[in-house]
Design a binder for these strands. Structure first.
Lengths: 237, 237
DNA sequence: GCAAAAGTGTTGTCTCTACACCCATGA
DNA sequence: TCATGGGTGTAGAGACAACACTTTTGC
């Protein structure tokens, strides 16, 4: 397709913000760029949208190609589209950002494509920056979206392995929100929410302490009434 | 920019869902298409993104060009990007949809560009369809977004003229949500929400009944705690 | 017994709902 | 005086924060 007056052909990409919880902190999957521009810098995984491909398919394909993760097994959703002129020095490149949440996971095998993909703590990038392109801003938007979604949906279970304790789930909330959550009230809240959790009948013994019941995620996707984070109130756009 | 393997040049457009309340029902701004494809059918206003233009600027420009409305005076935000192959018979066209909310407004002067732009009730399009491209789906998403935003933000004031009564504001909620709202509790709720409304000291006399105080919108943008719609609970994506 | 984490009970506070009731105007 | 919409008071229900308390394990 050629250019007309006031009609620019653009290149379209999809960038992925894949979040997980490891070692008690929130991590994001980043690659080290092997090519210019921003060679050697950290960036979100992503790639070009093919001619006859829908965006969700591109996101799933890139996820597999660049990280070896199975897109069918994790939660993901479209976040927002970024098109500020000059955001890519190569020219007019518009990117559709996706938020993905991955629970129990292997170290991402450097797939066919990317040089290396590694989990990094998100915290330094939320304040300091340091990512290629406008990926700092995309990451901030994604984290805020994830924080908000924990409030009124059951996506927190997507951060967990197939079987998990209520303590595991609570840690997800604490890590993503960055603040403590009362264990007693949390326990009652999630067990009282219809369809959030299903008991497996099994238990798990911690290093020390009473054994905890194991659950798997239930069929519910929304959480009503929502579980609001304590001090820093939600700030929708 | 030319095509490489696995790298398609796409055409990028912005489509606008401009909502307003008139005659007690929710209306959307639609144009009748003057060109193929879908000539003669109703569609959302929109247009191509220019080479050195950010998406918000495209949205604002199209709004002015196609409708004569002043983008600086109304609320708008990015909604979502639609890229399903085949959504536009002309080829690979990806569109970024915007939600805009307009309050007191003139009949849109058919601007320089569009053949005619007219306000139409949204209701038939939410169920039956009938719009060009995938604009039915976009409209549904936009209305659901607007309904959700009334719950936890103060955007409802964007549907109102500069000065309005609490009854006016309540009607916005009732029309957008499609269900009645208790006038007494609504009154207390919005007056109790810090920064939602500012008294002007003026009053307005209805055709019959006690005069109502006039307000203008306050500085607040979020509504905490939120005002939840009654029966059909929120269904976030 | 002690530490640690899981899980239960209880109380005060806050908010919402549902409604009764009063107020100010035009006809 | 009545109809109509604006605005206030209040009682009951539900949810939540805070925290005391019990349970179950390893050491």
């Amino acid at each position: 397709m050629t250019n007309h007056a006031g009609r620019a052909a653009t290149t379209l990409t999809v960038d992925l913000v894949v979040l997980t919880v490891r070692y008690g902190t929130l991590h994001v999957l980043l690659i080290e760029r092997g090519n210019e521009p921003f060679r050697g810098q950290l960036a979100l995984p992503g790639g070009f949208v093919r001619a006859e491909e829908d965006l969700d398919d591109t996101a799933a394909r890139e996820l597999t190609e660049e990280t070896g993760l199975d897109a069918g097994r994790l939660y993901f959703e479209q976040l927002r589209t970024y098109a500020t002129p000059g955001r890519d020095p190569r020219g007019r490149v518009v990117t559709v950002a996706y938020l993905a949440i991955q629970g129990f996971l292997p170290e991402p095998s450097a797939g066919t494509d990317a040089a290396d993909a590694h989990w990094r703590p998100v915290e330094p990038f939320l304040t300091g920056g340091g990512l290629a392109f406008d990926h700092d801003a995309i990451l901030c938007d994604a984290v805020e979206r994830a924080r908000a979604k924990l409030e009124y949906t059951t996506v927190a279970t997507a951060f967990c392995p197939p079987q998990f304790t209520i303590g595991d789930l609570r840690q997800v909330y604490e890590v993503v929100w960055g603040q403590p959550v009362d264990p007693r009230n949390f326990h009652r809240k999630v067990l009282g929410a219809e369809g959030f959790l299903e008991a497996t009948g099994q238990q798990r013994l911690p290093e020390t302490g009473r054994p905890a019941n194991l659950y798997r995620r239930g069929p519910a996707t929304v959480l009503t009434p929502p579980m609001l984070r304590p001090q820093p109130q939600a700030r929708p756009r």
